[in-house]
């Protein structure tokens, strides 16, 4: 089955609209790219789109009410809202150190959610 997509390149402000054709794992740029970096971006974006995710987790007894967190690596796009749901339900006791793992294997992605801030206990 072939699928055609238009991808907006984010490498530079020109923002090329790159048209791609997908057939299983075969990938082909049909038009629009001005550079090699753009082709690489379009390939990743068409075959396996992923996003870094940042959000925050409720803190118990901290000097701030929220702990900012990020995913340890980019998360498949279609899993973002599953991960967000888990983050929303999570809770952590202060103190917290930057880099500390807050949720392991979040939403069965094998990706961890880690603290991006240190929080003192009050």
């Amino acid at each position: 089955m072939t699928d055609e997509k238009e991808i907006t390149c984010i490498i530079c402000p020109i923002s090329c609209k790159i048209s791609v054709k997908l057939d299983g794992k075969n990938f082909e740029v049909t038009s629009g790219s001005k550079c090699i970096k753009g082709v690489e971006y379009a390939r990743a974006e068409a075959l396996d789109p992923k996003r870094m995710l940042t959000s925050s987790v409720l803190v118990n007894k901290g000097d701030w009410p929220l702990l900012s967190v990020k995913s340890s690596e980019p998360i498949p796009k279609n899993k973002l809202f599953h991960v967000l749901k888990e983050i929303k339900d999570a809770k952590i006791d202060a103190p917290v150190k930057l880099g500390q793992t807050v949720i392991k294997n979040v939403a069965n992605t094998k990706i961890n959610i880690i603290a991006t801030k240190s929080i003192k206990r009050i």
Binding site: T54, S68, K70, L98, T116, K117, S118
Partner: peptide, 8 residues
């Protein structure tokens, strides 16, 4: 980095 990481 995230903003909090960068500032810390």
């Amino acid at each position: 980095l995230t903003g909090p990481e960068y500032s810390e």
